[in-house]
């Protein structure tokens, strides 16, 4: 008896429209649509797409609970055993929407699967809740994505015990599952020690979180002509925290203008960081982001120019993977703007 699957896609793949239709509320269509047709063909008689949920990316990201509820009703209405979302490739909001849809299905005890480019922000946020297959960074990769998704979905539905991410081809979710080995822990420990003594390869059963090293870059030759940029994890944002960066476990960073700002005051700026006593930073944000001193140095010609935009996020409890990703993005933007050096302040 074929498995019944709900497929989630966005407004573009659902043929509703492009960016202009990103606010399209969720709609339920019987049968397959868009990439679902290729999935249906790949599944043959093993599974069928009972219905497709088509929803605009902005709407989904803006109304998470409502869309999750809508998906729950669709799963119940069609008695579906699984939800497959995407593939979203490198589309950021579509990746978040697919992650949300898959998580909603997983939360309701259904098999859930989506697929996107490994760098897509949706991966880090939702990998703990659902399986995610890696895809190319654009729809050109549809050819490999669909068969992989089809096969993996059947594997999940058959309930076979999965091997590691490397063996089965999904993105490692960082979720620990218990298992029973052939040997007791003590034997495994002594065997591992013997290999370590002899310098042989061994596989640790738990990897300690670790940070990578970066080669130091050469110093700035002439500071008086250099453009310096400010970045902070201390959470200094314009008053009112326009991007609503949370006090901990931030999911984004902000880029804010310093045009015409000579000194950070408590009236125009504040801290959003929940990891320390905020009174001092709110009283004088320069204590975290030294704009006043750098402006003086700029006037005195000690430095060439203070880059008019600064980047800020909250470093409190933020996932290492997120921070590394933002570091890359900010570095890229600063390089394109020909900034020569960065002052990174932390609290």
């Amino acid at each position: 008896m074929a498995y019944r699957i709900i497929h989630y896609i966005n407004q573009f793949f659902g043929g509703v429209g492009g960016e202009d239709k990103a606010d399209h509320p969720p709609e339920l269509r019987a049968g397959a649509a868009g990439p679902g047709l290729a999935l249906k063909q790949a599944w043959g008689d093993q599974a069928e797409i009972a219905a497709t949920v088509v929803c605009g990316d902005n709407y989904c990201v803006g109304h998470p609970e409502e869309v999750a509820g809508f998906i729950g009703q669709a799963l119940d209405k069609y008695q579906a055993q699984a939800l497959v979302a995407g593939p979203a490739f490198n589309a950021g909001r579509y990746g978040l929407a697919c992650g949300l849809a898959a998580s909603a299905a997983a939360a309701r005890g259904r098999v859930s699967l989506t697929a996107m480019f490994p760098e897509n922000p949706g991966v880090e946020i939702y990998k703990a809740n659902t399986f995610i297959l890696p895809t190319a960074d654009s729809a050109r990769g549809m050819g490999q994505a669909v068969p992989a998704m089809a096969a993996f979905a059947i594997k999940l539905l058959n309930g076979r015990r999965l091997g590691s991410a490397a063996e089965e081809g999904y993105i490692e979710r960082g979720v620990r599952l218990n298992t029973f080995h052939d040997e007791i822990g003590a034997e495994r420990a002594v065997n591992m020690l013997m290999k370590k003594i002899k310098g042989q390869y061994f596989l640790t059963e738990y990897k300690m979180p670790a940070f990578d090293r970066v080669r130091p870059r050469p110093g700035v030759k002439d500071m008086s002509r250099a453009t310096i940029a400010l970045v902070t994890s201390g959470g200094i944002v314009p008053k009112g925290n326009p991007d609503h960066i949370p006090a901990s476990s931030a999911r984004s960073y902000g880029a804010y203008s310093l045009e015409g700002v000579d000194d950070l005051t408590g009236e125009d700026f504040q801290t959003a960081h929940g990891g320390y006593d905020q009174t001092f930073a709110n009283e004088d944000p320069d204590r975290v982001l030294p704009v006043d001193v750098l402006r003086c140095m700029e006037r005195e010609g000690r430095i060439g120019r203070l880059f008019p935009t600064y980047f800020a996020t909250v470093g409190n409890g933020t996932a290492v993977a997120h921070a590394a990703q933002w570091g890359g993005e900010i570095g890229q933007k600063l390089r394109e703007a020909e900034v020569q050096a960065v002052i990174l302040t932390s609290t």
């Binding site: 991410a165 999904y170 979710r173 979720v175 620990r176 298992t179 080995h181 822990g185 003590a186």
Partner: peptide
Amino acid sequence: ELQAIMGATCELGLSRIGAYTI
């Protein structure tokens, strides 16, 4: 939780239990 079961995750490696990452 396994925490409530006697010797479930004994850290002397008395049983064959372990964990892996998916």
